[in-house]
Amino acid sequence: MKKTLLWIAALVVGAILGVLGLDWLNATADFVATVYTRLFQLLAVPTIVLAVITTLATFGSKGSGRIFGHTLTYTLLTTIAAAALGAVLYVVIAPGNVAVTQLTTDSSPITSNLSYYDHIISIIPNNIVKPFLEGNVLSLLLLAFAVGIGLSKLPESENKSIITKGLLGLQELLFLLIRWLIWTLPLGIVAFSAQLSAQVSAGVVADSIGKYVLVVLGGNVIQFFVVLPLFLLARGLNPIHVLGKMMPAVLMALFTKSSAATLPVTMDTAENRLGIRKNIARFVLPICTTINMNGCAAFILVTSLFVMQNGGTPLTLGTIALWIIISVVSAIGNAGVPMGCYFLTLSLMSGIGAPVAILGIILPIYTIIDMVETAENVWSDSCVATMVNHDLAEKE
Rank of each mutant, 00 (worst) to 15 (best):
I300Y: 05
N292I: 02
E271H: 04
E271G: 01
P286A: 15
S304E: 14
I326Y: 13
N279T: 14
T316V: 10
I280R: 04
A297E: 13
R277Y: 09
F306D: 02
R273G: 04
N294C: 12
G295L: 06
Q309V: 03
N310M: 10
Q309F: 09
N310T: 01
R277E: 15
G275Y: 06
G295Q: 11
I300S: 05
K278Y: 00
L305W: 07
I320Q: 04
A270P: 13
T303E: 03
I287D: 13
L285Q: 02
G311M: 06
T313I: 11
L317C: 00
L301A: 00
T313V: 14
T319F: 15
S327E: 06
F283C: 08
Q309W: 07
N292Y: 11
G318S: 15
V307S: 07
N292M: 11
F299S: 11
N310R: 04
R277K: 15
S327L: 08
G275S: 05
N272P: 03
N310S: 05
L305F: 04
I287H: 11
I280N: 05
L301R: 00
L322S: 15
I320C: 11
G311H: 08
I300K: 00
A297V: 10
S304I: 06
A281W: 04
A281Q: 04
W323S: 07
R273Y: 10
E271D: 03
V302Q: 04
A297D: 13
L285Y: 01
T290M: 13
M308T: 06
S304H: 14
L317I: 08
G318L: 10
A321R: 00
A270S: 10
P314I: 04
I325Y: 13
G318F: 07
P314G: 03
L305K: 02
G295V: 09
L322W: 08
I300N: 09
T290Q: 14
W323Y: 15
R282H: 12
K278D: 06
L301H: 03
L301G: 09
T313Q: 11
N292R: 07
G312I: 02
L305T: 01
F299N: 12
L305I: 01
P314L: 01
A281R: 01
C296K: 02
G318Y: 12
F299W: 09
A297L: 09
G275V: 01
A270H: 11
G318W: 09
G312F: 05
L322D: 12
A281E: 03
F299K: 00
L315F: 08
F283S: 13
I324N: 07
N292K: 01
N292A: 15
P314S: 08
L317F: 12
M308A: 10
L317T: 10
P314M: 07
I326L: 14
L305A: 05
